[in-house]
Write a protein that binds this DNA or RNA. Structure first.
Lengths: 253, 253
DNA sequence: CGGCTATTTGAGTCTAGTCAAAGCCTGTGG
DNA sequence: CCACAGGCTTTGACTAGACTCAAATAGCCG
């Protein structure tokens, strides 16, 4: 887990802050998630406790059961968070992308594993140091509470999906959600019906939706036959009938 | 939704605070959850923005889709939180009891409905007013963040259950979890293997575990035949082999 | 182009769901 | 105190949606 920066901390925060000064301001995630809460000037203090790092595809940067000494903020790329049962069954509890904060849902130890789906860049924060920042910028704590609340809402939606939706509804719900996520991040002038880029495999989709890869494949085939989606290569899917997709996902009609 | 206290607020917080003065200090939930974060003196400020209320069995006190203008804290009793699909399928996303805080997982509107399983008492907080309290007692905000983090961990465990566990494992996991919840709340001298009191019906259990009432019943019958539990009346279950129950719930062996 | 892996499709099985009936508590009223 | 009505729970028989195993196909990368 190599850091791009190796910083030996000897003095108070400002030593590191100077070295990191421009990093946060120029960060790709500057205006999403946590970092958007601070002004450019204040951001320097956050930079002081941030450690930039990257991970290759397939690399694990949080391991379930390890002491939860850090928080993470994704600057670029997508990762999966998952929990395993002893016999190998796996549940992916979420995908995190640019701007997402990881590690809130942890007590003494991490309750999940995090693995990069593609090459990613992220910031690592020492929990103790970040608590110090809280004192100076209460707005960060406020923002973290908002982030946690939002994640709870997402988690509750996912419980409804996993507990009560059919395979077809699950796949439709995922595609609809991923579509809105993509359009929210896209440039305003982007084509509304452009093909989605799915960084995850069918296997990962299955582990996220609580079904098998074969069932994912069959559900996608059904949606394709109904003209709801068009499947280019395996990781590119275009939504042809967004309204129909949303209707299926909400079990309407 | 009748309030036990009808308070007309004319001046600043201290007017209500005086009327509520003893309420929080004597509250059954005084030393659990949110309220335990404050000292007796500081608690008066919290009392100033709290409205006590009660709900009868079956009464709904939060409706999915309504504007989320309040937070709630359960002082006594148990309630279920659930989400419905248009065709009637229901997913219970959690049970809340004495000391639990409700309403963090809400953005503009509530994403779930809350209904009392038995007669309950609770405190209602105006979100705007509580935000004011945050400024004075940052520790409350810190505590709320802890609460939200813990709920996220619980939610992630439940996602694993709903996505990947068998019916038997789900029921075992629930019983094991309810047991530890009960022993955590019980007096230290309580019998360790006393029968559990389950305030929810088989139907509610099924909606929580993502299965049907028949499947719940069959799973309980299996556990009974294996000597793991003993079922008294429908709402009283004794755990005879806690270790075996835990093993089944974790899919170990 | 060829090998490798991921995905799709097919056939059969199984877990859990559905429908139905019987049993059992609970609470009420005579 | 007991009988009875009603709802909740259990059990049984059958069905269905998703899983497993297996084979064919399609992308992807060198």
């Amino acid at each position: 887990m190599p850091d791009d920066l190796t910083i030996v901390r000897r003095g108070p925060i400002n030593v590191a802050a100077e070295m990191n000064a421009g990093l946060c301001v120029k960060c790709e995630a500057r205006h999403v998630g946590l970092c958007d809460a601070l002004g450019d000037d204040d951001l320097h203090f956050l930079a002081g406790v941030a450690r930039r790092a990257s991970a290759a595809r397939g690399q694990i940067f949080i391991t379930e059961g390890d002491p939860a000494k850090q928080f993470f903020n994704i600057n670029h790329g997508t990762a999966k968070l998952y929990k395993d049962l002893p016999d190998g069954r796996r549940q992916i509890i979420g995908f995190v992308s640019t701007g997402d904060f990881v590690g809130l849902a942890a007590e003494k130890i991490f309750g999940f594993t995090a693995e990069a789906l593609e090459p990613i860049q992220y910031c690592r924060f020492d929990r103790t140091e970040l608590r110090g920042v809280f004192g100076r910028f209460p707005i960060i704590e406020r923002r973290l509470l908002d982030v946690a609340s939002h994640e709870l809402v997402i988690a509750q939606e996912q419980m409804l999906l996993l507990g009560r939706k059919t395979a077809l509804e699950r796949v439709a719900t995922f595609l609809d959600g991923w579509r809105s996520r993509a359009t929210a991040c896209a440039a305003p002038n982007a084509a509304p019906n452009a093909a989605l880029d799915l960084p995850m495999s069918r296997s990962e989709l299955a582990d996220y939706l609580g079904i098998t890869i074969e069932t994912v494949s069959r559900a996608l085939a059904t949606l394709r036959k109904q003209g709801v989606v068009s499947i280019g290569s395996d990781h590119r899917i275009a939504i042809l009938k967004p309204a129909r997709l949303a209707a299926i996902s909400q079990a309407a009609e």
